[in-house]
């Protein structure tokens, strides 16, 4: 199968790889997928509590090239967005940007799930604080 140039670029030069402190109250962590399914994404956002803006986003992904590219792209898009804007990111946006073929759409779904899980984790922490 041929990969799109954008997928290859994200695979070769993944953006924002890394991990942030899970216990930091301003950091939301989302981990989706399962090893036996062949893909696991960990996506983290660091939110400025005063402005609600995502100041940093990091990811680590176990999965195929399209899964890596989807999560790498997600971190790029998340930076600078408000939490509400981030929740508006749809998997179809990722499909279009990366020209993912039908068999790889689940990678984009997983990335959208990871965004939602990370933000939900942040919101839960913020509510408790």
């Amino acid at each position: 199968m041929a990969y799109s140039e954008k997928v290859i670029d994200h695979y070769a030069n993944p953006r924002n790889v890394g991990s942030m402190d899970k216990t930091d109250p301003t950091v939301g962590t989302g981990m989706v997928g399962a090893p036996e399914c062949g893909d696991v994404m960990k996506l983290q956002v660091k939110v400025n509590p005063a402005t609600g803006i995502i100041e940093d986003a990091k990811f680590k992904t176990f999965g195929c090239g399209s899964a890596i590219a989807s999560s790498s792209l997600a971190t790029e898009w998340l930076r600078g967005k408000t939490v509400d804007e981030a929740l508006a990111i749809k998997n179809t946006d990722i499909v279009n940007e990366l020209s993912l073929p039908p068999v790889k759409i689940h990678c984009s779904v997983l990335a959208e799930d990871a965004i939602k899980a990370a933000i939900s984790d942040y919101k839960q922490k913020a509510a408790k604080a």
Binding site: S19, P35, V40, K42, K60, T61, F62
Partner: peptide, 16 residues
Amino acid sequence: RELSPLYEMFKEGIDL
């Protein structure tokens, strides 16, 4: 493996 959340967890001693 630098990219893998599973390898990171393994290194942290988490039983996957």
